[in-house]
Structure formats: C-alpha cells, structure tokens
Simulated assay, not measured.
Amino acid sequence: MFELGDLVIMKKSHACGQNRFEVIRLGADIKICCMGCGHIIMMPRRDFSKRLKKIATKQPDVKIEQESHYVTLDQLQKPKI
C-alpha cells in the first residue's frame, strides 16, 4: 500500500502533463502534490485508490536531488491543535 512521502503514478495526468505525484497527507482524504507544477490535490481515499496506477518510489528510496517539489517528512508542518 502507499505511505506518506511515496511518489505515485496516477492513471490520468495532471493539466501540466505530469502524472507523478507525492503523497503528502493520509487519512479519510488523501492529499497529493503534482511533481510537475507543485499543485496540491485532495481527494477521498476511495477515489485515490481507483485512480492510482502504481507506486513509483517508496519514501525511503526517493533521491531528493532529482525531485524538485519533493518534501521530506521533516519539512511537513505539524497540525496545530
């Protein structure tokens, strides 16, 4: 399954032409960030699972130098409760 920080490939590409996304939030809704333009998309987990083609790279294997929009787990903001 997918985890926080994974790079995934979706069945349909984004408007910018890129179909690679980074998972930046997990829960009932999944938030993904386009690796082409940095646009953030939020969708229900069920829709995400239907639209997911494959997991390109697991979070520990990502080479940060090669990914311009990649956000590490340390850089994610903690929710203010």
Rank of each mutant, 00 (worst) to 15 (best):
V23T: 02
I64G: 04
E22V: 04
S13T: 08
H39V: 15
I32W: 07
I41S: 01
G38S: 11
L4M: 06
Q18T: 12
A56E: 09
Y70F: 11
L76T: 11
I55M: 03
T72S: 15
K12E: 11
P79D: 07
F2S: 02
R20F: 03
I81G: 06
Q18G: 07
R45N: 10
M1Y: 13
K63A: 12
D47A: 14
S68P: 05
E67W: 01
Q66Y: 09
I41Q: 05
K11M: 14
V8C: 06
I41C: 02
C34S: 04
V71K: 04
L76E: 09
Q66D: 08
G38V: 09
M35K: 08
I81E: 05
F21I: 00
A28H: 12
L52R: 07
K54H: 10
G27P: 04
A56W: 05
C16N: 12
F2C: 01
F21L: 06
S68L: 09
L26T: 01
D47F: 14
K11E: 12
Q66V: 06
E65S: 14
V71M: 10
L73N: 08
E22K: 02
K12L: 09
V62D: 00
G17H: 00
L52H: 05
I32L: 08
C16F: 11
N19G: 08
K53T: 10
Q75F: 09
A28G: 03
S49K: 13
V8E: 05
F21M: 07
I81A: 00
D6P: 07
I9Q: 11
H39W: 01
R46A: 10
K54I: 13
R46K: 12
R45A: 09
V71E: 10
V8T: 03
Q77S: 15
I24H: 02
D61M: 01
K11I: 15
V23G: 00
S13F: 12
R45S: 15
K80S: 07
I30V: 13
T72G: 03
L73V: 02
M35P: 03
E65D: 14
V71T: 11
K80Y: 12
K50F: 15
I55F: 04
K58Y: 01
Q77D: 15
T72C: 02
V71W: 03
E67Q: 15
I55E: 00
H39C: 05
I30M: 03
C16R: 08
H39E: 05
F48V: 10
I81C: 03
M1S: 15
K31P: 03
S13N: 07
L4C: 06
M1Q: 05
F21G: 01
S68M: 14
H39F: 12
T57E: 07
K80T: 11
H14Y: 11
P44Q: 11
N19Q: 13
C37L: 06
E65Y: 14
D74A: 13
S13M: 10
K80E: 10
I81F: 12
